[in-house]
């Protein structure tokens, strides 16, 4: 090792910091808890998970997920995905210290301008997953695409595109 070169941080320290930041971002939102949505993290990639619950049903005869639940799930995946990508940059650049993130003062969440959903097949009474891709994130606006699936990653049951107002960032 070159003398003077900083030792890489232990992997557990890095993981703990990133998980704590994600936890702070998600835990503060009552509606995410109400729907039961959780987030799996692999590096910077997030997968939103919606465990099935009877209260998510919109058609008891089939049964099928409520279209509004699908909308809410994808919008949540988009907002957290976008917010996480902004937080990630600041965190990795050392501009913020996740250990000192105040859940109440945490970077404001992006505001949805519009959200367009494609319902591709009916949502089954099973767990659902979603991943968001930030196609463009500027100073004020962002465009995010979300894909959602259940049993097969290749068989989407819904997809969506949304535009968001990016919260003003601290100098």
């Amino acid at each position: 090792m070159t003398p003077g070169a900083p030792r890489p941080e232990p992997v557990q320290v890095v993981k703990q910091r990133r998980d704590a930041a994600l936890q702070t971002l998600v835990a503060g939102v009552p509606y995410i808890r109400f729907l039961g949505i959780t987030f799996d993290r692999r590096g910077d990639e997030l997968t939103a998970v919606l465990p099935f619950d009877d209260k998510l049903i919109g058609n008891p005869q089939l049964p099928a997920l409520h279209g509004g639940v699908t909308a809410a799930f994808l919008e949540t995946a988009a907002i957290i995905g976008l917010s996480w990508s902004l937080l990630w940059e600041d965190m990795e650049a050392g501009r913020i210290d996740p250990a000192r993130l105040d859940p109440l003062l945490l970077p404001r969440l992006p505001k949805t301008i519009d959200f367009t959903l494609d319902y591709l097949r009916s949502g089954l009474p099973r767990d659902a997953y979603a991943r968001a891709r930030v196609n463009r994130s500027g100073r004020r606006y962002a465009s995010v695409h979300v894909e959602a699936w259940q049993d097969n990653r290749g068989r989407l049951f819904a997809q969506a595109t949304g535009h968001f107002l990016v919260p003003a960032r601290e100098a």
Binding site: P30, Y31, E75, L104, T112
Partner: peptide, 19 residues
């Protein structure tokens, strides 16, 4: 209160409005 999307303001989450 369970449907709040922005804890700082108490505003309902867009997803609930969509539903």
């Amino acid at each position: 209160a369970r449907l709040v999307g922005d804890p700082q303001t108490g505003v309902i989450h867009g997803g609930a409005v969509s539903a």
